[in-house]
Design a protein around this nucleic acid. Structure first.
Ligand SMILES: [Zn+2]
Ligand SMILES: [Zn+2]
Ligand SMILES: [Zn+2]
Ligand SMILES: [Zn+2]
Lengths: 160, 160
DNA sequence: GTATCAAGCGTTATATTATTACATTTCGGA
DNA sequence: TCCGAAATGTAATAATATAACGCTTGATAC
């Protein structure tokens, strides 16, 4: 279980790795990573936090890539469907996938103080939700698992 | 782990029990379950599915209890804070709590076909999310756990 | 090559969800 | 009975999201 987003890491590598994987993935699935879509993914990747559709749109507008909401929503929808990004329901916002290439069921840890978001990759739905679904005979198609709270850096320090 | 919402049950009893528990709870916590708040809870309780704020508002308007959005949002916010209702983030909607009086961390099973929503009561965050949070040093304050899919009644039948 | 068709994009308009702000009322406690 | 906090009424607006429609592009078939 790797949680990306709170650890200090080589973020440049993080970005270029993910972009490369996104290229591969889209090529493999015969999906077209057009300029707008690519740029939106780059914008999402810039920081490990969620970005609102209108934030993204503002960047696109500043760069002459589009000014109307559908421009942003189409690109975001594409990235989500392609598995390159996830929607954070609790924030009505979007984030780049931190485990591109790995088959995973994402779970998010959202810091209310610094707004950073970590994506935890645990492979299966065998936690609470899986058990509850099995017990109820429910057939899961998609899961939303998001925790809000304080990341390690934002927690009050005991040690003076 | 009881999942309420898909099972056939005595829903009249379900409603009156919950209303009684809500009364008790508000009294105990010194919260005021005013007429609008009570009515909104009743509306939520009518069916085991999520209700949009504007759906609720439409009912209130029809009953002369208020016509402006804040009326619905205030009542819903009160009920959520009081623990009598939950917000379903994936639907931007609200549902009455099915485990009022029990200390619980709700998880929801949302049927995309019949829109019914079941609340599963599992007491602790020791599933995927809990483990991921512990591993990352994240301090959870609130969790959003929602599965979308098909409830037992809406699944294609093998047996002819 | 060029006709055809689907995917992508530009743009306008509109729908849905949610909050801010401020005046007024209600209600419990001093 | 007076005071102050909580609740409510109401208008305005913000934030998020989608529908609809026509044009452009780029791949494929002929
Ligand atoms: Zn990074
Ligand atoms: Zn992911
Ligand atoms: Zn019931
Ligand atoms: Zn509940």
């Amino acid at each position: 279980m790797a949680t990306i987003g709170f650890e200090t890491h080589d973020h440049h590598a993080c970005v270029s790795d993910t972009m490369a994987k996104a290229e591969q993935r889209c090529a493999a699935l015969d999906l077209r990573l057009t300029p707008v879509r690519r740029r939106v993914l780059e914008l999402l990747l810039a920081e490990h936090r969620a970005h609102g559709a209108y934030d993204i749109l503002a960047h696109l507008a500043a760069e002459g890539l589009g000014t109307q909401p559908p421009v942003a929503y189409r690109a975001l929808d594409f990235l989500v469907k392609a598995g390159c990004a996830h929607r954070i329901e609790a924030l009505n916002a979007y984030i780049a996938c931190a485990h591109l290439g790995q088959d995973h069921t994402p779970a998010f840890l959202i810091c209310r103080s610094c707004q950073s978001v970590a994506e935890s990759d645990t492979t299966l739905t065998d936690g609470r939700l899986g058990k509850a679904a099995r017990a109820a005979g429910f057939q899961i198609e998609h899961t939303v698992v998001e925790a809000q709270g304080l990341c390690p850096a934002c927690q009050p320090q005991d040690t003076l």
